[in-house]
Design a protein around this nucleic acid. Sequence first.
DNA 1: ACAAACTTTGGACGCTGTACAGCCACGGTG
DNA 2: CACCGTGGCTGTACAGCGTCCAAAGTTTGT
Lengths: 226, 226
Amino acid sequence: MSEAKILDAALRLLDQGGPVAASVRRIAAEVGVAPNAIYTYFPDKAAVLRALAERLLGGVDHDVFADPEQHWGVRVEALALELRATLTAHPGAVGLLVGGPLDGPSSMALNERLLQLFADAGLGPAAAAQASYLLMVYVFGSVSREVAGVHEGGPLPPEPERAAARRAELSTVPVDRFPLTAAAAVTMAGSTSTEQYLWGLRRILVGLSAVAGPDGDDGSSGAVAR
Amino acid sequence: MSEAKILDAALRLLDQGGPVAASVRRIAAEVGVAPNAIYTYFPDKAAVLRALAERLLGGVDHDVFADPEQHWGVRVEALALELRATLTAHPGAVGLLVGGPLDGPSSMALNERLLQLFADAGLGPAAAAQASYLLMVYVFGSVSREVAGVHEGGPLPPEPERAAARRAELSTVPVDRFPLTAAAAVTMAGSTSTEQYLWGLRRILVGLSAVAGPDGDDGSSGAVAR
DNA sequence: ACAAACTTTGGACGCTGTACAGCCACGGTG
DNA sequence: CACCGTGGCTGTACAGCGTCCAAAGTTTGT
């Protein structure tokens, strides 16, 4: 019996049964122990879930993206993709990441890497801090919206089926009242969620590269360009 | 007795006690009725919360931003600020918005307006759809992260106290292991969350304006600029 | 072999969302 | 006016939840 075994069981239940399945009693049963035994290793259920979130974030190997030879934008993009892959692999656990404060060591290591990347891009400390916050918000928010609606567990279905689901759903949009929304739904159904993710990510990177430069401008002045 | 009274009570409890306080029994007690009476008007608890989310989104008056005289970027920014204000006014309810699928009429009306704004900006239908998705992700994700950690109810404390809390928290960052993160925390503590929100929002708008133009390019080609 | 420390357990408390059967006050029809 | 059907509401109940307490069991140190 150990913290690791408990987290294993919790993740297993979360993966196949969603958040509702990850109860203290079920976790304990999965480990083969009485419910209360959990409280020997964690003060309460929230601590278990926090630890699990930390473990998942720790699984993102971001040392790969340290190589300063490559362009910073490419490295940020690769890291964002890696992070998304890690999160979507466990849809039921995504809620743990967006709900909590993300102040564990793995979260900080990830943030540190991101800050390093933006420093490489020529952003000053203030701009890098804001940029890393922006990117985190986008990555987590995007994945969160993507898995929203997968109420009861199971992994994310493969992309073809998800596209079909989107197509079926768009017929419920009242075309006469929301013509643009209906058209947008058709458009969105025509591309994979990875493409959509990358599109937004690249807009953000473009917006960031506009403040990147040797002067270290923090880009706080003025409204949108033009 | 009516749907409206139930939603009133639910929102009241959500505001002062957070998500945990919004139980069916508590809502019923607040209305002055037996718990089961709720099920006369809503099939289950989730339906109550969905309806409440819809009502909140319906409270965002976006007709104001239809005026095509003003620059599209200014109008998007104003809408994003209005939306954020609506959400942060009820921190306990933010979770309802990021969890659900956002397919109600108010959500669609909001999306429709956003699509219109991006069409005004010169984005083609595909790019407008992606842009609106990107903006929604940012707004909801940003607010969600902002209210994360306000576990037990109550309104968001005023900005000075939040800044103080951030400052107190940053002393827990191990400076030797995460120097950039520590520095970033100091930086973030020096600006209000509204400023941070606007900073990211403007990076996104800059990134979007790069694909805005008479050609209606969908901006899908190539990696980040440079 | 004894004691101390730690782990695990059975049982319980108060809470949750929700189903079933019955009550009660109302509207339309004789 | 009397009647009866209908629909909102209630009392009760069930299974499950997170968590605490006291007792039991197990391991460790001497």
